[in-house]
Amino acid sequence: MLEKPTTVAFDADDTLWQNEQFFRLTQQRFALLLKDFADPADLEARLLEAERRNLGHYGFGIKGFVLSMIETALDVTEDRVPGSVVRELIAAGQEMLRHPIHLLPDAREAVEALADSHRLLLITKGDLLDQERKLAQSGLGELFDGVEIVSDKTEATYREIFARHGEGASRAVMVGNSLRSDVLPALAAGAWGVYVPHPLTWVYEHGDTPEGHPRFREIERLGLLPDLIQSF
């Protein structure tokens, strides 16, 4: 018999609040700036390649995204990209870092509903300052018993966090929109994994659905989460 969970951990970006839509808008701006040098589809593919290549250097987040755009612009223009374009890309990144938080539907209600009955954690990747800013603006910070901003989400990451904050992975649930980062490594660590799809999830975060796994669940919106957790 599976033990009841005592800890519920949430991903942040595109689970509790919007994030990827701002990256998409900036990519559209990037394509317009480079339209005289590259086909939009080719530019998108080369940017994704640069982002993947640079994750080990810059990690996840807006700053790495901007640096990857600048690198891609240099590549497709053979180092002839106008300085004005580089300046606009930097400005676009700064706008993203200033953008106000928009909570996703049911996010606040789901977190509040579980706050009295479970230990709540926020486990997110990305730039430290930016994630701290977004959490502060979200108004949800006081509801979490712990906040972990990590460089990546792996099986070892989840094992360590759930051991330090609770009763281990076997008594924990990880909730998020990324199969690759939120669900699969959490399942591997022995936790439950609850997948809440978001229509704009970055392609890097896609993964194979672990059909048949006894600790995997999928819900269409966060409003269904409290009842799901109580059913375990």
Results as ranks from 00 to 15, higher is better:
104 L>T: 03
140 L>C: 03
42 D>E: 15
219 I>M: 09
205 E>D: 13
89 L>Q: 06
171 R>S: 15
106 D>I: 10
167 E>C: 14
35 K>D: 11
217 R>P: 02
202 W>N: 01
110 A>S: 13
91 A>H: 07
85 V>Q: 07
57 H>A: 15
176 G>K: 03
121 L>P: 05
159 R>Y: 09
108 R>L: 01
183 V>W: 09
55 L>K: 01
138 S>H: 09
7 T>I: 06
180 R>M: 03
3 E>I: 05
41 A>H: 13
2 L>H: 02
42 D>P: 05
119 R>K: 13
24 R>Y: 08
85 V>R: 10
48 L>Y: 14
34 L>G: 03
79 D>G: 11
168 G>W: 10
112 E>A: 08
155 E>T: 11
206 H>C: 08
113 A>W: 01
19 N>Y: 11
64 G>R: 03
177 N>C: 11
6 T>C: 08
80 R>C: 03
218 E>F: 00
152 D>I: 03
126 G>V: 00
81 V>I: 14
41 A>P: 02
45 A>S: 09
107 A>E: 09
115 A>L: 08
22 F>V: 04
108 R>D: 01
71 E>S: 10
41 A>F: 14
220 E>H: 13
225 L>P: 09
158 Y>R: 07
52 R>I: 11
202 W>S: 00
9 A>R: 08
35 K>G: 04
224 L>H: 13
196 V>S: 02
60 F>K: 06
227 D>A: 15
223 G>W: 06
97 L>Q: 12
78 E>F: 00
201 T>M: 06
35 K>T: 10
65 F>W: 03
155 E>G: 02
35 K>Q: 12
115 A>T: 12
35 K>S: 14
122 L>M: 15
187 L>D: 01
177 N>I: 10
80 R>Q: 10
4 K>R: 12
30 F>S: 00
73 A>M: 13
193 G>S: 02
171 R>Q: 12
197 P>V: 11
150 V>E: 05
31 A>K: 07
165 H>W: 15
17 W>S: 02
160 E>Q: 14
9 A>Q: 09
129 L>A: 15
213 H>M: 05
229 I>D: 06
100 P>T: 07
93 G>P: 11
59 G>L: 09
178 S>I: 04
170 S>E: 15
2 L>E: 02
34 L>D: 03
124 T>V: 11
88 E>M: 05
41 A>E: 15
72 T>P: 01
232 F>M: 13
22 F>G: 01
218 E>V: 02
164 R>N: 12
181 S>K: 00
15 T>D: 00
119 R>C: 02
210 P>L: 01
143 L>W: 06
170 S>T: 14
177 N>G: 05
124 T>L: 07
129 L>S: 14
88 E>L: 04
103 L>G: 11
7 T>H: 09
149 I>F: 12
65 F>H: 01
18 Q>R: 05
12 A>K: 00
102 H>W: 05
69 M>A: 07
93 G>M: 10
208 D>P: 01
217 R>A: 15
58 Y>N: 07
201 T>R: 00
72 T>Y: 05
108 R>T: 04
66 V>G: 01
206 H>K: 12
83 G>N: 10
78 E>S: 06
88 E>Q: 14
39 D>G: 10
33 L>F: 00
6 T>P: 07
44 E>I: 04
